[in-house]
């Protein structure tokens, strides 16, 4: 059957237009509209929406809390990237290079936290950190380090670092699998050749594995950075709600507090715009620094 042009375009419209209209209304419009809102002072009711130009942005730069929320976000980004990548690379290499019979078991188990709800993860770890009942403090007591025990999530200094472990715990599996995928694509003959040439396993790791799985490592780092900058506030909201004394507020949780708790919607939108800009810049810079000649042997 030969379709007429008209029929083809009708079909095309049938396929694309309804979806695109909804996408435009519920995804594109809110993003642009958020940018627009950032120039208003607005508590939510239609009557008192005042155009204030850039004053929300000026206020944000002079905000006492906001700069620290950026630092907190980057603290989580850096510690998560380091923690997840070291463990994920280690586990990926261990599970592929050394013939371990029960490797599939570890793969299945390590991945599971990746599909758990942040609420479940957060509440579980609140228990682990619980000052009286928690595993961490009772563990420290058991090995005689009582003086290290503290109310982890209630301690201004330790609350933010305490959020890293749950995120690493929940994140490793996915990146381990990504890296396993990369490593299993490396031809076995490379390792055999290296072995004949007398290269140690350590040398093989640095000279063969690392360069050849670099694309996967790069993707993993980028993915951790993006998901942390765009989503770290979820675990913060569940576990500490930004407290104690704002010590764990990240940009997103601060936005939530400003917009949906204190009804400064214009100011909240300003924070949102800054989050968008910061994450885009971060990703661009990272991509620039991680570009590396593709290695082929």
């Amino acid at each position: 059957m030969v379709q007429t042009k008209k029929q083809k375009y009708l079909f095309l419209a049938f396929c694309l237009v309804p979806t695109f209209i909804l996408f435009a209304i519920f995804t594109l419009y809110p993003l642009f509209s958020g940018l627009y809102y950032s120039f208003f002072e607005w508590s939510g009711s239609a009557a008192d929406k005042d155009f204030v130009g850039f004053s929300n942005y000026i206020k944000l730069f002079n905000d006492e809390i906001f700069p620290s929320t950026i630092l907190h976000d980057y603290f989580l980004v850096v510690t998560k990237v380091i923690g997840i990548m070291i463990l994920a690379i280690f586990f990926a290499v261990a599970l592929t290079q050394l013939r371990i019979k029960e490797a599939p078991f570890y793969r299945v188990i390590f991945f599971f936290p990746n599909i758990m709800s942040v609420v479940v993860i957060g509440i579980l770890w609140m228990f682990i950190y619980n000052p009286g009942l928690g595993l961490v403090n009772s563990g420290l007591e058991m090995i005689g380090l009582e003086e290290w025990a503290r109310p982890w999530l209630g301690d201004e200094e330790w609350a933010l670092p305490s959020l890293v472990l749950p995120s690493v715990w929940a994140g490793i599996g996915l990146f381990m699998l990504l890296l396993i995928g990369g490593i299993s694509n490396v031809p076995k003959s490379y390792y055999e050749a290296a072995e004949i040439d007398g290269a140690s396993e350590w040398q093989q790791f640095w000279k063969i594995t690392m360069p050849l799985v670099w694309p996967q490592i790069k993707v993993s780092i980028l993915y951790i950075v993006i998901t942390t900058l765009n989503g770290s506030f979820i675990i913060v909201q569940v576990m500490t709600q930004g407290g104690p004394n704002n010590a764990t507020h990240v940009m997103g949780s601060y936005l939530y507090q400003q917009a949906f708790k204190q009804f400064n919607f214009g100011y909240g939108a300003t924070i949102g715009v800054v989050i968008l800009i910061i994450s885009l810049i971060t990703v661009l810079i990272l991509q620039f620094f991680m570009r590396r000649e593709k290695v082929e042997y």
Partner: peptide, 12 residues
Amino acid sequence: PMVLGWIPLFFL
């Protein structure tokens, strides 16, 4: 990051 869009989405 959709968090920016959530404010207008709320009113929409």
